[in-house]
Simulated assay, not measured.
Amino acid sequence: MGMNTGLIGGGASTLFGAWRNMVVETVEAFRENVEGRAARDADHRADVLSQFAAEMVRERRGGWDRFIDGLNRLPRPLMAFGTLGLIVAAMTDPAWFAARMEGLALVPEPLWWLMGAIVSFYFGARMQAHGQGFEREMLVALARMRARVPEPDPAVPKGAARGQSSGGPVWPNAALEDWQRTRG
């Protein structure tokens, strides 16, 4: 008799577990898993806060580096305020302004081309450096995201928790991986 209850009890719990998994999977098809949502929200909040914290961290730099950074920030404001100053000068003292424009008209054309190239390369290099910095940040964020999201394990049932999988990226991207191998 004790043997029968053990078999029946074991079979009943297995049968109940299968029914429970089927019900859970069916319900989750129509309604979001609240615990999973809470975990995803907590992870998202932690990621946002860590990103904000990383943006606020300042590198310890020497006086020379701060001076050069200050000089690098001057050209655009100087050009903008210089243009506004020329407009104000043209309105307040047209004779003085005309004399300065006659002097500019005497500058040879190759010198204008050279100045244009220098200004274009300066702003182009800054724009490229900022773009590469943004690209680097996005690649780091993508790598962190891919390292944290596990790959589904075929041995784990569909309704099982995500933490029980084998790990690794969920969305393999052969082109991105190839590009990363060639860069580093």
Rank of each mutant, 00 (worst) to 15 (best):
T5E: 11
R162A: 15
R162L: 14
G10F: 01
P172S: 05
R37M: 12
E151Q: 13
P150I: 07
D69Y: 04
E102A: 05
R31P: 00
R31D: 07
F16K: 02
M1E: 09
A117G: 09
R162W: 08
R100N: 09
P154E: 04
G103S: 14
R126K: 15
G168L: 07
A53V: 06
G131E: 06
R144L: 12
N173C: 09
P169A: 11
A143T: 10
H44F: 15
R60M: 05
P77H: 10
R181L: 07
A42V: 06
F134T: 12
R37V: 10
V149P: 02
G159P: 02
L71A: 09
R61D: 05
G163L: 05
N21F: 04
Q51D: 14
E151N: 07
D41V: 13
F121C: 13
F52V: 15
P94G: 00
V156S: 07
T26E: 12
T92F: 02
A53R: 12
L74A: 10
S13F: 05
R61V: 15
A174V: 09
G159I: 06
D178F: 11
D69V: 07
G82E: 04
G11P: 01
D93A: 00
E55Y: 05
M115L: 13
A95S: 10
V23G: 01
S50H: 12
R66E: 12
A39M: 09
L142Q: 08
W64R: 11
H130S: 13
V24W: 03
V88P: 00
L142D: 09
D153Q: 05
A175K: 11
L86W: 01
W19F: 11
V119C: 12
L111N: 08
F97L: 01
G36N: 13
V119D: 08
T92N: 01
L106N: 13
P172Q: 04
R162V: 14
S50T: 14
L114I: 10
L104D: 02
A42L: 11
E151D: 11
D153L: 00
G62T: 06
A143K: 08
E55L: 15
R45P: 01
L139E: 14
R76M: 15
N173A: 03
D65H: 08
N4L: 14
E28H: 12
A29H: 12
G103V: 08
P110K: 00
E55G: 10
I8P: 01
L78D: 02
G167W: 02
R61N: 02
D43Q: 11
I8G: 03
E102G: 00
A143M: 01
L139N: 10
V34W: 08
V149C: 07
A90T: 01
A161C: 00
M115H: 01
P152H: 05
L139Q: 12
R183M: 10
A89F: 00
A99D: 03
L111E: 11
Q128M: 15
A147I: 05
G63D: 09
F81V: 15
T83A: 15
M127P: 01
W112D: 00
T14Y: 06
M101Y: 02
L86D: 02
A147C: 05
F81H: 08
R40Q: 15
T5C: 03
E25L: 06
E102M: 00
G62M: 03
D69E: 14
A175G: 02
M91V: 05
P110H: 02
N173H: 06
A54S: 15
G133Y: 04
